[in-house]
């Protein structure tokens, strides 16, 4: 029983990371209709920078904020290249973000090398209902929950958030009322970058990061996001948590080698069922 509770909380912590990556994907897709393949790279860049800043003696909190800021900056840069040129179709932008993801490899290996890195997070062991687990998992949850609440408030209750939602809801009408949809797209990329960065900064103390960790992150993030058709952040949150818990349970009860398959098979099933229900998924290009 205490095993199960331990796995559940660990799984929620891991899943929170996926959910943050997924919500970044959703934030960008809703506004721009671009699936950002470089989303996992934001997490890696943020984690690597945080490890350097901590090693340089910066206190916790400041170093992590630095990492998230780099994620946001990387998001903005990806946005400028991917959607900055007028008339770039979402399909073309997807390939551009793929290229930028590979470019991030070059930058990361150049600066940080190709060996796994990590940094200490919240140290110590916590005891929850008889289960003992690293306290850092609780910190992940304690940060992720308010971040999602803040996002829900931002998108529904602030004028800037409403303008972003408006671009997602009806792009043409957004232009009619004078919203600069390209600039909103860049803002969405920046938010997506920060969310990806936060995922990397939060999960690295319990999971090492290497330059190519982004593949795992983007695949899990996409799997979580695709549950809600890439447009619903709260379903992406639920999907991410579900994936994290399932994978931890599978690993905990002896299927460690098949953790990744859980996300992959779920993602394939969801997409195929969605396609069967709605007919062929329309082309992204438009």
């Amino acid at each position: 029983m205490s095993d199960l509770i331990g796995y559940l909380i660990t799984g929620l912590g891991i899943g929170a990371g996926f959910a943050l990556v997924a919500s970044g994907l959703v934030a960008i897709y809703r506004v721009t209709r671009v699936v950002n393949f470089a989303q996992g790279g934001f997490a890696v860049l943020a984690a690597l920078l945080t490890s350097t800043l901590l090693a340089a003696g910066l206190p916790h909190g400041v170093a992590e904020l630095g990492g998230v800021a780099l994620g946001a900056l990387a998001g903005l840069i990806v946005g400028v290249v991917a959607i900055g040129r007028p008339g770039t179709s979402p399909g073309t932008s997807l390939i551009v973000t793929l290229g930028l993801g590979v470019l991030a490899y070059a930058v990361e290996v150049l600066i940080w090398g190709d060996q796994p890195r990590s940094f200490p997070g919240l140290t110590g062991v916590a005891e929850v209902a008889g289960a003992r687990l690293p306290a850092h998992y609780l910190l992940i949850l304690a940060v992720t929950a308010p971040v999602f609440a803040l996002m829900a408030w931002f998108f529904a209750r602030t004028d800037l958030g409403r303008a972003l939602t408006a671009c997602a809801s009806n792009r043409y009408a957004a232009q009619v009322v004078g919203i600069d949809v390209r600039r909103m797209g860049l803002l969405a990329f920046t938010i997506g970058g920060a969310l990806g960065g936060l995922a990397g900064v939060l999960t690295t103390p319990v999971q090492q990061v290497t330059f190519d960790s982004d593949v795992t992150l983007i695949v899990n993030g996409f799997a979580a996001a695709v549950l809600g058709g890439l447009t619903r952040p709260m379903i992406a949150l639920a999907g991410g948590l579900l994936l994290g818990v399932t994978q931890t349970l599978v690993a905990g009860y002896g299927g460690g080698a098949y953790q990744m398959e859980v996300a992959l098979v779920l993602m394939l099933t969801v997409m195929i069922v969605q396609a069967a229900r709605t007919g062929p998924v329309p082309e992204t290009a438009r």
Partner: peptide, 25 residues
């Protein structure tokens, strides 16, 4: 200001939010 053909609402948002977005600039 422009009242577009087909009305072009933000369908998932409330009337009040639709109105507020009209004053975006």
């Amino acid at each position: 200001a422009h009242v577009p053909e087909g009305r072009e609402m933000f369908p998932d948002m409330t009337v009040d939010d639709n109105l507020r977005l009209g004053a975006w600039r």
